[in-house]
């Protein structure tokens, strides 16, 4: 019964999504960004690591569309290659946060009682420390000058951002548990794993996807912010946040090294947030 119900909900949502222009626009953008991260050489033939000081702060030209930055590096090439590290951190940290949130939320919702109390308090405590503040303490010195810091930042963001996913899963499990058909399945002796995969997950996956999609956007922004502050990526990593930090000091001489990474960062975050919004609208029956 739950299967046909969730399938029809998913089916409805898909019909809705197919006609949603915002979904398609953000979907295409996300696909493009992913492609850029995987094969950046498809978009630029220039090498982002080759910088010639002679080109310092040169304006846009046919060879370098966005001009050169203070170090004489090709801004377009660096911006395109910057996609990779940003997405890597964003995707991996969100994956980690998602898995943690899933486990914590389900455990709290399923076992209730003391487990729930402890895990909920833990969630409260995590929410008691604003993300960026905790992140600057944690990842500050993890990135030595010789490491690019991808691992450290991913770990930091993943460990600090699971709370939203946990809350969603917890309430989803509690709702599902109280539903008649789940209670019936429990009485018939269905084990927790079976219940979770057959009954709880299909009904809560939508809100989980929404939380995760939006988290992807915010984690990418958080990476840029940390890198900007010098507590994120470093070494030979290419990051939009690092580019912005560097270009800011010469913004009056050459705006392009500041503007383009900014645009790429904003568009990436926007694409994920729009995608999350579109999915939420499709799944939220209240808005229909």
């Amino acid at each position: 019964m739950s299967d046909t119900r969730s399938r029809s909900l998913a089916g409805d949502a898909w019909t809705d999504l197919r006609h949603n222009k915002i979904f398609w626009a953000s979907g295409v953008l996300v696909a493009l960004i992913l492609l850029m991260a995987v094969v950046p050489s498809l978009f630029t033939s220039a090498d982002p690591a080759v910088c010639t000081l002679a080109n310092q702060n040169q304006g846009p030209s046919s060879t370098a569309w966005f001009g050169y930055d203070f170090q004489g590096c090709d801004v377009f090439a660096r911006t395109v290659y910057g996609t990779r590290d940003s997405l890597e951190v964003g995707l991996l940290s969100t994956l980690l946060a998602g898995v943690l949130g899933l486990i914590v939320g389900m455990a709290a919702g399923w076992f209730g009682g003391v487990v729930d109390a402890v895990l909920s308090r833990l969630t409260d405590i995590m929410l008691g420390v604003p993300l960026l503040l905790a992140a600057v303490v944690f990842s500050g010195r993890l990135s030595s000058p010789f490491e690019d810091g991808v691992f450290a930042v991913t770990l930091t963001l993943g460990l600090l951002t699971w709370t939203a996913a946990a809350r969603v899963m917890r309430s989803a499990v509690i709702t599902a548990k109280s539903q008649d058909y789940v209670a019936a399945a429990r009485m018939l002796g269905a084990g927790p794993a079976r219940l979770v995969f057959r009954h709880v997950l299909p009904n809560s996956i939508a809100s989980f996807i929404v939380v995760i999609t939006i988290l992807l956007g915010t984690n990418i922004a958080a990476e840029a912010t940390l890198s900007y502050l010098g507590a994120g990526l470093g070494g030979d990593a290419i990051s939009w946040g690092l580019q912005i930090a560097e270009a800011r000091n010469y913004a009056r001489i050459a705006a392009s090294p500041l503007v383009w990474p900014s645009v790429f960062l904003a568009v990436t975050v926007l694409a994920f947030i729009m995608l999350g919004d579109a999915i939420r609208d499709a799944f939220d029956p209240k808005l229909r």
Binding site: G241, R248, L265, V269, L270, M274
Partner: peptide, 15 residues
């Protein structure tokens, strides 16, 4: 609001 959500402060402030 979508634009505001998408543009992080690290972009907004310098620009």
């Amino acid at each position: 609001t979508l634009l505001l959500l998408a543009v992080p402060i690290v972009v907004l402030a310098p620009v």
